[in-house]
Design a protein around this nucleic acid. Structure first.
Lengths: 315, 315
DNA sequence: CTTGCTTACGAGACTCGTAATAATT
DNA sequence: AATTATTACGAGTCTCGTAAGCAAG
């Protein structure tokens, strides 16, 4: 078995079982590809492709498994090249960070300066999106790391770890009646209209659940995707109150608002980073993660990476 | 880059950086190995090995990473061969099950008959050990699957999933005073001497913790590794009482004992299976897992397998 | 008759093994 | 002096590309 054969497999599958096109994409000849595939099938003594009248029309059941593993193997070998280049050109490259608006505005600005100082030759690219789409970008290879609150969806191809927790707070207009109550209850809070924002964040979506479960469902005026700053403006305009993270409120800059800590009522919200489990992260990405989550043991993280690497997704 | 070069890397590392021995193990010549290594280093434009006066004495930092990935890639390619053979010879082979005594005695006997009926040509081998050593066997390749309570140690190279939960019960000698109390408290229970057994099981070791935490540490007479049946004998002999799983008690066969359910006091104990995350399990192992944990969604399991890391009940 | 996979065959590259060389313990 | 890695070189293999064959829509 040679790597070339596995590459051929991958390309044939990627080109809808058309060997001619796969060969073209590989800059080689049809017969060469055809022959290598046959050789591999012969070596394994099992059919990988379903042939119908001289044409390849699909994968056999073992073929599907074999292609999956072949892809994992190829990714691994390509990782070797990536790692080598990473060491050769340490500190040179591009880091594409996908983040939610809140993370981008309230968390990353304190991280980036140190990073660009340490890695002046790494280009930074910041992409915005809700947790699910940010993670999708990483999964699709359009971003190198996502920093988001927990997404509502699972991404089995990503390694996700918590980097910090944000305390929940109730954002209300200045002079709001709730400010006079110390530690207001769910019931008291639910008496006011809410500005909610549905962002694909797991904890955020659980908050409404929590109110409902306790018998005091909240009344909301908005629930379309939007970001924390818009919500604050709406709160300031008197449309309702909102549950946000404590760190999004700055009393200096937002004189029209006040915050009530809700850590006694609601769970803190996790901020997580996500990277592809099957790709070796570049050194500067690891360094970035260290800045994001200094408490994270580097060895523990590497261990998690090791565990996540051997196999790949493509289910 | 060719697979052969990666094999050479692996073997050189496995033979303490002695190319001659590696070549011998690979049934080829020293110069061939040396040359391929050089070629690879040249292609990657990075040194993998540290050379000191013409001798290889160790791995460079990138070398360590590269060897790790190379091993993953090799395992993947070898997996392809395994999978192919698995499909060719479906239902023929060997399944080595590592289990704890309790699992082997009280859980597996109800599973195996159906298995041997379905796979009459699969040889079964049952290995006994505490959770940690059973999992170690799987990690080392000496067993194909472990079925145990949760081990106290983590095994990052294993995929572990829960297959069932066992209700805890207090085993006491017939006529024991606690039998007259309905739902005895930790305090009441802790008044009696215990026969404990230290088995490398996570939940088991947490039980004592729970008593201590609540201010009623238990007094125990034994704590050396032993199995549930020995414990029951000791209980019957009047040496103390014990916390075991409900399913290990059979009123028919053990007239000298009685059981008190403790599910209102203690967490159920998880029974988990563990398999190597980096090896494709054979079809009959998957089938065995299905029998063990019928409630487990096969697709979810395959997905976890693809991801290569545990998807435990962390949510 | 076009599209697409397979077989045939020859050129060229490359791996591998033997032998010789160099360098360190 | 002995052990071990590297260099040199030649034989054999194997991949790959061109060309022809063949089957199906």
């Amino acid at each position: 078995m040679i790597l070339q054969q596995l590459r051929y497999l991958r390309e044939i599958v990627a080109h809808e079982f058309n060997i001619s096109r796969a060969a073209e994409a590989l800059c080689t000849s049809q017969p060469g590809v055809s022959k290598q595939v046959r050789l591999l099938e012969e070596e394994l003594k099992i059919d990988i492709f379903v042939r119908k009248g001289g044409r390849i029309v699909g994968l056999t059941e073992p073929g599907r498994v074999i292609v999956d593993i072949a892809n994992a193997a190829l990714r691994a070998t390509e990782n070797i090249g990536t790692v080598a280049r990473d060491f050769r050109e340490e500190g040179v490259g591009l880091m594409r960070v996908a983040a939610t608006f809140s993370v981008a505005k309230y968390l990353l600005p304190s991280i980036f300066p140190g990073f660009v100082e340490r890695y002046p030759n790494v280009s930074l690219s910041l992409l915005e999106g809700d947790p699910v789409s940010a993670c999708s970008m990483v999964a699709a290879g359009d971003a190198d790391i996502a920093v988001t609150t927990r997404p509502t969806r699972q991404f089995p191809e990503l390694l996700m770890m918590e980097c910090c927790r944000l305390q929940p707070a109730l954002i209300v207009p200045r002079g709001h009646p709730l400010l006079e109550t110390k530690n207001p209850t769910l019931e008291q809070i639910s008496g006011y209209r809410f500005v909610t924002f549905n962002t694909g964040s797991l904890e955020q979506s659980r908050i409404q659940q929590k109110f409902s479960d306790s018998g005091f469902p909240i009344k909301s005026v908005f629930s379309s995707p939007m970001n924390a700053d818009v919500v604050k403006s709406l709160v300031e305009a008197g449309l309702g109150i909102a549950v946000l993270s404590r760190n999004t409120y700055d009393p200096q800059r937002e004189p029209g608002l006040e915050a009530i800590d809700l850590d006694y009522l609601l769970e803190p919200r996790s901020v997580c980073f996500s990277i592809r489990a099957d790709l070796h992260p570049r050194a500067y990405v690891l360094s970035f993660i260290q800045s994001l989550a200094p408490q994270l043991d580097r060895r523990a993280m590497m261990h998690a990476l090791e565990a996540g690497r051997p196999k790949g997704p493509d289910a």
